[in-house]
Design a binder for these strands. Structure first.
Lengths: 151, 151
DNA sequence: CGACATTAAATGTACGTACATATATTTGCA
DNA sequence: TGCAAATATATGTACGTACATTTAATGTCG
């Protein structure tokens, strides 16, 4: 469905405004679908992403600073997302012995198993029924990268 | 800057995953820029958008249902966003006489002036220094529309 | 060594989002 | 008419985001 019909606004000021709205709308649409997929497992999208970063480090620990560095959203509050993962016993937090200001965060066995379980459902393989082909996706990536080249 | 460098992840599983992350990242990037532009005026992005919808209706009122219908994010809580606009005297709320379940929301003179003031700064004319040309923006719109054609 | 800046994380606050539930009014229909 | 269903909005709760401030540990340099 075209963006005009999705948001019931037949006329845009210009193609830029339309692209802008289309981009925000499509990103929200994708995130809503992803969030719905994780909900049965009791995870939010940022919680899932942090778990994956931790698995990438495993068996080494990560610090909060490392998580922020790897996250898409730099301003999100990694501390509090880790709080929730800790409550669910999916990660552990221990003071880093080498630098007692820092905190070593590690994914637990339960956390690893949860990731396996989620991935076993094939939820993440959206690309299997992706409506864009390779060339189109490459084109989209180029356009998006270019869109951020301002100032 | 390419998305690989923005988020310090050199390798993606496939072009789809890359496009997905690029899309989310770019949308967030755009929204952060927009939000920063409204902050000096004490408005958030959804507050600004609702004010614009109300101006579009003016001098007729809008109901909460109409606002939700026109908003990008259907699940956001228009009631509470209107609360904040009302506190700032930018809108008024009166019970709709024709249907006492509904609420007539109207932009005030102060609200209209604030919109004028914001638009006078040229903040919204991003298209003037947009890095994509007409054809590229049309292409982007087509790709985004197509991306949402699943199921 | 000791004061001061820097760094790492946590906490506070305002707001928005997602979704469930509540309250009030109106509609439809037996 | 009267009562259940539908409609319009508001409220509650959990979570995330954006940004400022706090707390604790470490570095640095006179």
């Amino acid at each position: 469905m075209r963006i005009e019909d999705e948001i019931k606004q037949p006329i845009f000021r210009d193609e830029y405004q339309k692209a802008y709205i289309n981009l925000i709308y499509t990103a929200g649409w994708l995130q809503l679908r992803q969030a719905a997929a994780f909900k049965p497992f009791g995870l939010t999208l940022p919680q899932f992403n942090i778990l994956r970063i931790l698995r990438g480090q495993h068996p080494l620990p990560a610090t909060v600073a490392l998580l922020i560095d790897r996250m898409l959203d730099k301003t999100s509050n990694a501390s509090r997302i880790v709080d929730r993962l800790e409550e669910k016993k999916l990660v552990t937090r221990t003071v880093c012995p080498a630098n007692r200001r820092a905190v070593d965060i590690r994914i637990t066995k339960t956390g690893l198993e949860l990731l396996d379980q989620i991935e076993a459902t094939g939820v993440l393989h959206l690309s299997n029924n992706a409506p864009l082909n390779e060339a189109e996706m490459r084109q989209l990536n180029d356009l998006l990268d270019k869109m951020r080249t301002v100032e």
